Computed example of a mutant assay.
Amino acid sequence: MRRLPILLAATAALMMPAIVSAQPQPPAPQAAKGPLLSLSVSESVNSAPDMATINTGVQTRAMSAKDAMAQNATQMDRLIAALVKAGIARKDIQTSGINLNPQYDYSDRTDGKGPRFIGYEASNQLTVAVRKLDSAGDLIDSLVAAGATNINGPSFGIAEPDKLLDQARTKALKTAQARANLYAQATGFRTARLVSISEGGGFAPPPMPMMAMRDSAAAAPQTKIEPGEIATSISLNVQYMLEP
């Protein structure tokens, strides 16, 4: 009879881990109260740009690759010097492409003649950030005077678009909620509750115009640049639950 308390204690000890390890279970997820509505919404904010990007460069030809590249380097030095003199910071001048290719004349193909080699063409292109738009026209003129053989641009932009992007986000969210409420009411539901959101889009500049070259020897008015306005836009993909 003395062994009974010992057996009872051992049995209680074996049962304790099961009691201690028991944890409350999380509540089961609630079933959806209504259908899900997916929307894509885009909004933009227009503003005057505060910077522009211009692509420029020089092309040279010579009978040897070495001479073509040497001539190109000389003209490019003059081009970069003109940019620096105009107040463009070195950090805003970036090489965007260097090319060297043989050139052939294909015009005479009579009697089975092959293309005629006419030399090498070297090109060096720069991407330039212009932060003083009122001097952009004068800058283009100075590039032409310094020997630029091609100019593309300008492409206008916003240096720090964060505030404009936030304004566009606010507009997009309001538009999405209003549209979701419309769907809810039109289909017999009371409210539309936002359940997910993802973002896309960003700064949307207008198409970049092409700047045609002109004869530097001819008298002509200075190049005029009109920045106008650009749109800073945001696209949202949102999902709402329609609830009764």
Rank of each mutant, 00 (worst) to 15 (best):
S42I: 00
V45S: 04
A82L: 15
M69K: 09
Q125N: 15
Q25D: 01
G114D: 04
G119Q: 11
V84I: 07
K113R: 11
R78M: 10
T60A: 00
Y120W: 13
Q59F: 07
S44E: 06
A70T: 15
S44V: 07
V41L: 03
V41Q: 05
R131L: 02
A22E: 07
L14T: 13
E121C: 02
L36A: 06
V45D: 00
A82E: 12
Y106K: 05
A68M: 07
S38A: 14
D92M: 07
S107W: 09
K85C: 00
V41R: 01
K33V: 15
A65D: 13
S123T: 12
A89K: 04
I118N: 06
A70V: 14
A12C: 12
A48K: 09
N99E: 07
M16H: 03
G57M: 12
A129D: 07
L133H: 04
G57F: 11
V20N: 10
D134K: 04
P115L: 11
S96T: 14
S21P: 01
L37F: 07
K113D: 06
Y106F: 15
P35A: 05
Y106L: 12
M69T: 00
Y104N: 11
P102T: 09
K113M: 02
D67E: 15
R78W: 03
L100H: 03
G34C: 13
D92K: 01
S107C: 02
P49G: 09
M15V: 11
I118R: 10
G97W: 11
T74Y: 00
I88H: 04
S40R: 03
P49I: 05
A22G: 04
L100F: 02
I19R: 10
A73W: 02
D105Y: 12
S96Y: 09
S123P: 05
R61Y: 07
Y120E: 00
A62K: 08
A13T: 13
S123E: 08
V45F: 06
A68Y: 08
I98E: 08
M63A: 09
E43T: 01
T95P: 08
A28S: 07
T95E: 14
I118D: 05
Q23M: 11
V128D: 08
A70K: 13
A82G: 14
S21Q: 12
I54K: 03
E43M: 07
L126K: 10
L36I: 11
I98Q: 06
R90E: 03
Q25S: 05
F117R: 13
I54C: 06
D50F: 06
T95I: 14
P35L: 01
Q30W: 01
D77L: 09
L83M: 15
N72I: 01
P29H: 04
L83T: 02
V45M: 02
M15I: 10
A70R: 14
D108Y: 11
S44T: 06
M76E: 08
M16N: 03
M15P: 08
Q71S: 00
G114E: 02
R61E: 15
K33L: 15
A18R: 12
G57V: 10
I93S: 01
A73D: 15
S42N: 03
A48D: 10
K33E: 15
V20G: 04
P17W: 04
S64M: 13
N99G: 05
L37A: 06
T95C: 00
I118A: 01
G114H: 03
G87H: 02
M51Q: 07
Q125W: 13
A12N: 01
P29T: 03
D111S: 00
A12F: 12
